[in-house]
Amino acid sequence: MDNKVFTAGIDIGSNFIKLILMDYTVDNPIVIDKMTEKIRKRDPSQVADEMLQVIYRRHGIQYEDIGYLASTGEGDLIKRKKGHFYGMTTHARGGKFMYNDAVTVVDMGALYVRAIKISEDARVLDYKMTGQCASGSGQFVENISRYLGLSLEEVGSISLQADEPEVSSGICAVLAETDVINMVSRGISTPNIIKGIHLSIASRIIKLLSSLKAESPIMLTGGMALNEGMMQALEEQLAETGKKFELKTHPDAIYAGAMGAALWGGYRYYKLKEKELEAV
């Protein structure tokens, strides 16, 4: 622990809280611990605090040992922290950290999808995001999977089993849910329903990328980026529309926001140190 500079990022989403602990001692910071927790109707700031306590115990540290604890997402509600960064800023940084060549980051979260154009130094240059409707979001996939009696973890692999996907409404979550009920009563198989949902979301993402005039390579972040069925649907839709985007993801894609917060926190930690020295 001696002379180490720890930074932590907490990303409070609508479903999950993601926590990253980094060692920012060196130029090339490394992730030393990570944790996710489903909120399950609890007070998010309370859950985040409990997660932090777990991390502190694991590493024998306390709040004062963290050089910069940064929040993002809805993490502004956490009382004890050093700073807060906006979600887009952190996803851009986290995406770039996981795949350094990325020039576009697509954050596929529970409530919306954001396509973000980024610079060499992970600065947000432009962005487009899905509107108010939830039909392009992870929450929608979760709702449908619940109707179909699936766990979120198995949605991706079941989607891969589809042979004749049935595409649902890509515009409205309510209509899409009605579509799904009709599909079930028409005897459409679960893999084909799920795959249809993924294709519908994929087509919305491709529209976002087109309107952003996005460039390759594209780093996919957020919870949905780990859904292999979603990834396959995206690739199929891209092939169908003739767009040549190189898609990348990472096993830690869900942590992109938290990771970005921890990274920007590290950057600010040293900036503030510099200022302190200047003042002296």
């Binding site: 502004d76 700073g83 807060h84 960064f85 800023t89 947000v124 920007w264």
Partner: peptide, 12 residues
């Protein structure tokens, strides 16, 4: 969001 991006742009 506006205030947050404003803050980020100044801090970073």
């Amino acid at each position: 969001e506006q205030a947050g991006t404003f803050s980020d742009s100044i801090k970073l």
